[in-house]
Amino acid sequence: MIRVLIAEDMHMIRSALVALLSLEDDMEVVAEIERGDEVLATALRVRPDVAVLDIDMPGLDGLSAAEQLSARLPDCRTLVLTGLSQPGNLLRALKVHVKGFIVKDAPAQTLTDGIRRIAAGERVIDPELVAAALETGSSPLTARETEVLRAAASGIRVAQIATQLSLSQTTVRNYLSNAIGKVGGRNRIDAIRISRDAGWL
């Protein structure tokens, strides 16, 4: 029996996923949660074999939750459900040892098969997502530029970013300017939009 944890913030979709997996003879849904920051604590308590995580959740995004799971509960394999709109997320998912990366609108059979294969030790990556990631390309931003742009995306001012990241305001401006140039944005807002769409933030 494969013990499955489901983390999805949209109630209707979460219920549908639970109902779908409950129909499978070899699967048991041991926990269903709606916030990303509850994933680790719940997983440590119920010890699932596979955690099915939505990529966008309140509290903590699915990939960060997967990173925490990988560090604290390596035996639990993660499968992330995502949209096609942010192909750059695949790279981040692979880096945090996500074992499955499936698009949300895939047939139900793909999800159940994916959970079985992941539980058996395989890696399941949707070919559509690989194609989209190859299409978009890897992020042109350095780790620091990504960090600064992500901070800017949260709406805080340059002075606050500088304090938060222990940098001078000039350095923050330089990083932002480099990031805007590298992603081909017209301004900071445009660069944040492009990077978000590509999944680089």
Binding site: L91, K95, V130, L134, E135, G137, S138
Partner: peptide, 19 residues
Amino acid sequence: RRPSLRAELDTAATLLSAA
């Protein structure tokens, strides 16, 4: 969209390395 072959190969190498 037709990305360049070089960019596609670079991204493929990055993805495989990340895996």
